[in-house]
Computed example of a mutant assay.
Amino acid sequence: MKYLVTGVAGFIGSQVVSRLCSLGHQVIGIDNLNDYYDVNLKLARLDEINPLVTFQFIEMDLADRDSIAALFAEQQFDKVIHLAAQAGVRYSIENPMAYADSNLIGHLTILEGCRHNKVKHLVYASSSSVYGLNSKTPFETSDSVDHPVSLYAATKKSNELMAHSYSHLYNMPTTGLRFFTVYGPAGRPDMAPFIFTKKILDGEIIDINNNGDMWRDFTYIDDIVEGIIRIQDVIPTVDVDWKVETGSPATSSAPYSVYNIGHGSPISLMDFIGAIEEALGIEAKKNFRDMQPGDVYKTYADTTDLFEATGYKAKVGVKEGVEAFVDWYKDFYKQGGYGE
C-alpha cells in the first residue's frame, strides 16, 4: 500500500516509517523540520530512514493547505498515519498560536485530504493529556475528557472531535491513539528521560515536580510502533445500533474509534529516575519542587480495547527501556557532538 506519514523526522514517525518499509509498503513522509527542539536530532532520524528504497521525504508544513491538498491529489494514498503536531505541554502555555497552526489547522488539512481522496483509513495521534483533571485510574476511553489542563491537551481533544465529524459526515474511517509518555532511543529532548539523562551526565541539578510524587505510564517506543502498525489494519466500520446514550464516547455509529496506547502499568517518577541513575552509574543531584502548571499527578492507561482489537500488549519494561535509551544517548552525544 501507499502511506502518508506526517511528522517523519519526529521520534515516533521515523520509527513507524522504518516498520512500514520493512513490511514492503511505499511511504511518503512529510515534516516541516521546525526548531522547537534540536533540528540536528531530526536530521539524524531522517538520515536513518532516507536510504530506505520505498521511502520518499518531502519537507512540508501541515498548515500549508494548498501544498497538502496538491500532495494528496497527486499521490492518492491508501492510508494515512498522522503523527505531526506541535508537542509539549509547557510550550503551549508560552506559545499558544503555534498549536493553532499545527494541531488545529494542520489536522484539518489532513482530514480534508483524506476526505477528497478516498483514503481508506486515517490513524492520528491524540494524547493521554486529554484526560486532564481525571483522578480515576486507570484512564479508560469511556471516561470524560472534557476538562483539559493545557492548550496542548485541548487541541488533541479537538482533533478527536474534528475526526468524528468527518467520520460522520463523509463515512471516513478514523482512529485516534492516545499516547502515554513515549520514551526510548532518539527520543524528544523536551521529555523527562532526555532532560534527566543530560543533566545527570553534565553534573547539573534535576528538577523533580510535586516533590517526586508523580506517576507516568512510561511506554517504550518499540511497543508504541507495534501498536500503531497493528491498529492501522483495524479499520472502523459503521455501527447502526450505537447510540450516544448507551455507547462509549470512544466509538460511534460512524466509522470512528479512539484507543489508549500505553504500557498499562504506571511507574513512579522516583523509580524512573532511579533506573536512569543505575544505567548511568551516577547519582543525580535533585531539586524537589511543587507541581508545575499543566502537569497531572498520574497517568495510567487501560489498554483493554487495544488488546481486544489487535491482540497486542506492551512488552518492554522500564529497566530494559531506560538502558537502551541511555546507551543511545551516550553514543549519539559522545564528546558533546552529534555522533561525532
Rank of each mutant, 00 (worst) to 15 (best):
D222R: 09
I224Y: 10
V225D: 06
E226A: 15
G227Y: 11
I228R: 08
R230M: 08
I231R: 10
Q232A: 01
D233L: 04
D233I: 01
V234P: 04
I235F: 03
I235L: 08
P236Y: 05
P236F: 07
T237R: 15
V238G: 03
V238E: 11
V238A: 10
V238Y: 03
D239E: 14
D241Y: 05
W242G: 03
V244H: 12
V244G: 03
V244E: 14
E245Q: 10
G247V: 03
G247A: 04
T251S: 14
S252V: 02
S253E: 06
S253P: 00
S253V: 01
A254K: 07
A254Y: 10
P255Q: 02
Y256S: 04
S257Q: 15
V258W: 05
Y259L: 01
Y259E: 01
N260K: 03
I261K: 02
H263N: 14
S265C: 08
P266R: 05
I267K: 05
I267C: 05
L269N: 05
M270P: 01
M270G: 03
M270I: 14
F272Y: 15
I273W: 01
G274V: 04
A275H: 13
A275S: 14
A275G: 02
I276P: 02
E278Q: 13
E278G: 01
G281D: 05
G281M: 10
I282M: 15
I282P: 09
I282C: 08
K285P: 00
K285S: 07
K285R: 08
K286C: 05
N287S: 12
N287I: 02
R289W: 00
R289S: 12
D290L: 07
M291R: 15
Q292H: 13
Q292P: 04
P293E: 10
G294M: 04
V296L: 06
V296P: 02
V296S: 09
Y297V: 08
K298M: 13
K298D: 04
T299Q: 12
T299K: 08
Y300V: 00
Y300G: 00
A301Y: 06
A301H: 07
A301K: 11
T303A: 11
T304A: 11
D305S: 15
F307N: 12
F307P: 06
F307I: 08
E308H: 15
A309V: 10
A309I: 10
T310C: 12
T310N: 12
K315P: 03
V316L: 05
V316R: 09
G317P: 09
V318L: 12
V318E: 07
K319P: 06
G321T: 06
V322Y: 08
V322S: 10
V322I: 15
V322A: 08
E323T: 13
V326I: 15
Y329K: 13
D331N: 13
